[in-house]
Amino acid sequence: MISLRIDDTPVQAKPNWTILTAARAAGIRIPTLCHLDALRPVGACRLCLVEIRNWNGRLVPACATPVQEGLDVVADSDRLASLRRTILELLFAERNHICAFCVSNGHCELQDLATELGMDHVTFPYRFPALAVDASHAKFGIDPNRCVLCGRCVRACSEVEGAFTWGFAGRGVHTLIEADLGEPWGQSTTCTGCGKCVQACPTGALFEKGKATAEQVKRPALLAEVTERRPRA
């Protein structure tokens, strides 16, 4: 076992754990968005940034940083809270997250995080991009206006389903999630229609057709349930 401190609490961790795993095992909450159990960590959303006191106060993503003996981790501080609120604000300003019109209203991870972290208004100018919805698939739809580019769908599709339908296209603020290198989703020849991407999506970007807002409750934990039942190699 490895010993470290998180928010001045001594924590024991297995050598292959990340700081996030160790924190959760010790009952310490660290907000996450791009992280999902069963998927490889990418450290992209930066909401789980924690401060390492004995690395000169460097900020690292808890989800992707392996534990080390003697780490002195700050997971909750005014500095981190303000940083996380700013990151959420940037996400809200980036695309069109208008909860009142969204199928995920009331069960959206982005919305929940805003509530939890006290992000009650956006001080950045909204960018209001006009992005086309793809409703060509028989069962599902994708609305990039609500996408936070966490890549959970991409990883669910490649790492759990093994279909490799989803990928990133473009770069920077123009990045989009695309099926089969830009085909309409409904014409994808690789998509198995399993819906794991939809369950993995933290917002209303990926949704099931024919379901009302109240019914559109996602089960991101499904991914871990699926992989844990698989025989280990």
Partner: peptide
Amino acid sequence: SCGKCVPCRV
């Protein structure tokens, strides 16, 4: 910017 992380992308 590659667009992966929020602080740089936005």
